[in-house]
Each structure stands twice: as structure tokens, then as C-alpha cells.
Design a binder for these strands. Structure first.
Length: 377
DNA sequence: TACCCGTGGTA
DNA sequence: TTACCAAGGGT
């Protein structure tokens, strides 16, 4: 696009945005705290998924000071089901920095913002422009696609050259005042009109400035991300029972679902022709220090996590002896109290299954016709 | 730099 | 059913 056109481009885009932009919860004010929380939640996450989480989060933690003094597990509980849990741990860390090093006042400078945990180049630009109307550029999924098409960039937008060009354009197109609103408008156009498949160019307010519109190359620009390879794995999850409680383990920071609670769980050999019960019992002893007697398999879940497709086999088991190893965090929890712990989706499904099992046991106390072994004593 | 991190919606 | 995608960042 010719730099001489930036001004009229902006006018057309803003007119469209004022008319057609969505009313979203985080667009109703310029509170940097609220904008920050929304931006973190929206990372790699859809608007529809974020809205209820955003509302609940702000109700429980209205200010950065509330967040800084919270327990990490409280934050994770509010994040439960949203994914990418390091985001939740990072906002906790960042909240503490803001309170301790910035006296609880949100920093306004791009560099200061980007130095906070979980805030990268895009999120720093978003907060600086949306909250403080600084002339800060942004490039994320929507604007990357939009910019590539506007300028007809047919290279790899993730390459060094592509990134340089996109960030350059993102900055050049900004006005001296009103960058926050323009950035919002750019993203909105990318999200709702300049979509991945079948962009609605006829209703695009700036199609006359778009190189791919002129050339008819919208379908091939931008270049798609390289394919991800899916790996099949099989895991077992074991609800180890002692009395009326089950054993939960807090997942450590170097593994998936870090900070969330889960049943004892590990990968087994994928070839599922025979189930090696002795291997499972031995692994449980290794990991927990407990000797167990395996119970029945009560559920199988298929679960996809980015590049893995996991078959999760869920068992119950009884602890017969042994003492829990001290190198990890454990809790014995009654099914009624599972909701008090942040759980991964699969752990949540397993927990539901266990609760259901207990209800069934109560409904059919005479174990004559039930094949599955009762969870009651 | 390449890889890791989750979940749900859509075609 | 599968493949792709979403307001990215950390290491």
C-alpha cells in the first residue's frame, strides 16, 4: 500500500469499525488491568471461549492487588478448562511485580510491559495502545493475515523477513493519535471479514487498498502454518482409594497441566493387545510408594492435546499398604470435594465418572446384577 | 531456533 | 472423522 493512502485507509476502516465492531466485555473501558487479563486469556483462544472466563475472573479479582495476594491454586481454578495454564501462573507472577515494583500502578511503557512474565511483543503493544493510546504496533493471528493480504506478502510470514515486514507495516499504518482504536479495528476486520477461508471481500471497507483483492490471491496468502504431526499414545490413570478418599497429585512445573491436580497417571506401551497389570502396579509403587490392588477399568477417554492423541484408560485401585513419597504434593480427597481442586479436563472427566459410580452403587446396593465391582466397602 | 504448552469450534 | 485454527509466549 502506498503510504500516501494510509490516511484515507484509516478513515474508511474506523468508519466501518464504529458501525460494525462487536461489543465485547473488554472493550467497554480502558482499564489496563482488564485489558491485560483479556489479552492473556485471548492468546490462542477464541472470543466465545474467553467471555465467561473473563467475567468470572474479574468478579473474583477486580484489581491487580486482589490478584497479587491470591493463591496460585485459586487462579488456576478460575483458569480450569481454558488451557495453556502457564498463562495463569504468569499473570500471578506479573501481578506481584506490578504491586511490588510499580506500587500497583500499571506500567505504560512498551519495554516495561514486555518485561513482565507472559507479556510478549504483541500483548505489550495491545495494552500500550488499547489502554494508553500509545503508538504501538501489533501483529497477531488476525492482523498477520490482514497485513499479508493488504501488502500481498507471499513469503512465509513467520520467517525473519516476514516478521520484519509485518511489524514495519503495523507501525507505519498507525496514526499519531488513536492507535488504540485503529489497532482494535484492524483486528476486528481480520477476525470478522478477512477470515482464513473465504474472506468476505465484497463487504470489506478497505478492499480497494488490498493487493490480494486486486490480484485474486486471497486463497493462497498468507502461507499456512506447516502441518503438525500427531503422535498416538496410551496412558493409564488410576483412582487409588483409601477409605472414601482418592489420591490426587499436583502436577509439577516441568510437565503438561503444570499446577493442576490429577489422578496418578503415566504412559504405557501403546500396543494395547494385552494390558500389563503388573507393570502398572510396579509403576504406581515407584511413583507413589504405595502398594495397590487393581480394580476394574471404569472408563476410556480419547483426548487430543496439540500434537498428541491420547487414549486414557481409567482404573480404580485400593491402597493396601505403603507410605506416600515426600518428593511430590499429594492429597486424599473425597469425590464430593474434587471440585475444590483445579483439574485437567481428563482428570475432571475421570472424577465425574467416579462420582457417577458412587451414585450407582447407592442405587443398586445389592450387587447381584452389577458386573463392575462396587466402589463401596 | 525449534519445540513446548490445551481446549473447543468449524468445515 | 480429521485437520485446521484461535487477540502468543517461554525456553
Amino acid at each position: 500500500m502506498n503510504p500516501a493512502d494510509y490516511s484515507s485507509f484509516r478513515r474508511k476502516l474506523i468508519d466501518w469499525y464504529v458501525d460494525r465492531g462487536r461489543d465485547l466485555p473488554w472493550r467497554r473501558n480502558h482499564d489496563p488491568y482488564q485489558i491485560w487479563i483479556s489479552e492473556i486469556m485471548l492468546q490462542q483462544t477464541t472470543v466465545a471461549a474467553v467471555i465467561p472466563y473473563f467475567e468470572r475472573f474479574l468478579t473474583q479479582f477486580p484489581t491487580v492487588a486482589d490478584l497479587a495476594t491470591a493463591e496460585e491454586s485459586e487462579i488456576l481454578k478460575l483458569w480450569e478448562g481454558l488451557g495453556y495454564y502457564s498463562r495463569a501462573r504468569n499473570i500471578h507472577r506479573a501481578a506481584k511485580v506490578i504491586v511490588e515494583q510499580y506500587s500497583g500502578v500499571f506500567p505504560t511503557e512498551l519495554d516495561a510491559l514486555q518485561s513482565l512474565p507472559g507479556i510478549g511483543r504483541y500483548t505489550a503493544g495491545a495494552i500500550a495502545s488499547f489502554a494508553f493510546d500509545q503508538r504501538a504496533p501489533i501483529v497477531e493471528a488476525n492482523t498477520l493475515r490482514l497485513y499479508c493480504r493488504l501488502i500481498g506478502y507471499d513469503g512465509d510470514p513467520r520467517s525473519r523477513d516476514g516478521q520484519e515486514r509485518l511489524w514495519r507495516f503495523a507501525e507505519d499504518v498507525l496514526p499519531q493519535k488513536g492507535s488504540g482504536r485503529l489497532n482494535q479495528a484492524l483486528m476486528e476486520l481480520g477476525a470478522t471479514v478477512c477470515s482464513v477461508r473465504e474472506p468476505d471481500c465484497e463487504s470489506c471497507p478497505v478492499h480497494s487498498y488490498c493487493q490480494t483483492f486486486r490480484e485474486g490471491t486471497q486463497a493462497t496468502i498468507p502461507q499456512p502454518k506447516p502441518k503438525t504431526v500427531i503422535t498416538e499414545t496410551t496412558e493409564v490413570s488410576i483412582g487409588i482409594r483409601m477409605g472414601s478418599k482418592f489420591l490426587l497429585r499436583k502436577r509439577t512445573s516441568n510437565e503438561r497441566w503444570a499446577g493442576l491436580w490429577d489422578f496418578v497417571r503415566f504412559e504405557i506401551e501403546h500396543a494395547a493387545s494385552t494390558f500389563d497389570s503388573a507393570f502398572v502396579v510396579g509403576s504406581v509403587l515407584d511413583r507413589t510408594g504405595l502398594s495397590i490392588i487393581m480394580g476394574p477399568q471404569i472408563a476410556v477417554f480419547k483426548h487430543s492435546v496439540t500434537r498428541y492423541r491420547i487414549t486414557l484408560k481409567c482404573f480404580t485401585a485400593d491402597r493396601v499398604k505403603g507410605r506416600l513419597k515426600a518428593n511430590e504434593e499429594w492429597q486424599w480427597v473425597q469425590p464430593a470435594d474434587f471440585n475444590g481442586y483445579p483439574l485437567s479436563v481428563t482428570a475432571r472427566q475421570f472424577a465425574e465418572q467416579l462420582k457417577q459410580q458412587l451414585v450407582n452403587d447407592h442405587e443398586t446396593p445389592k450387587a447381584g446384577k452389577t458386573k463392575k465391582r462396587s466402589l463401596e466397602h
